[in-house]
């Protein structure tokens, strides 16, 4: 397999990994909700901003790692790759929702 063929197959999970990993690390570093993850006029205070940022950052990194694993699985079994990313996204979404309820905006 040439480098071009490898990149053709994996550029989407690589992109997903890069975007979500950067967003996750950004959240962990700044310790608050970044503007690109909230509605523009939503200035409601969070119940616990520090925990929101910590949990959110970790969840985004988890999603990024899921994308990276999908990248590898694409070379072995497409069904496994698809099942893996679906499972990762489902768990990510449920945990994100829980985080929003526990530490998210008041009101």
């Amino acid at each position: 397999m040439t480098l071009n063929e490898i990149f053709d197959m994996t550029w989407i999970p690589i992109l997903a990994f890069a975007l979500s990993f950067c967003a996750g690390v950004h959240m962990l570093i700044i310790g608050k909700r970044p503007p690109y993850l909230k509605n523009k006029d939503d200035n409601r205070p969070l119940k616990n901003e520090a925990m929101y940022a910590k949990t959110g950052g970790r969840l985004l990194i988890y999603f990024a790692l899921g994308a990276a694993v999908m990248c590898g699985l694409l070379f072995f079994n497409l069904w496994m790759a698809l099942a893996e990313i679906v499972a990762v996204f489902l768990t990510f979404s449920v945990r994100w929702r829980e985080m929003e309820e526990k530490y998210g905006p008041i009101g």
């Binding site: 999970p13 997903a16 967003a23 694409l74 497409l78 990510f92 449920v94």
Partner: peptide, 24 residues
Amino acid sequence: AYLSVPPFIATLAMMEIVYGGNLI
């Protein structure tokens, strides 16, 4: 809407899922 996942993450994930599904 229901899980409050930011649109860019939700559609990024859907992009991967659709890509994988289409490959299969």
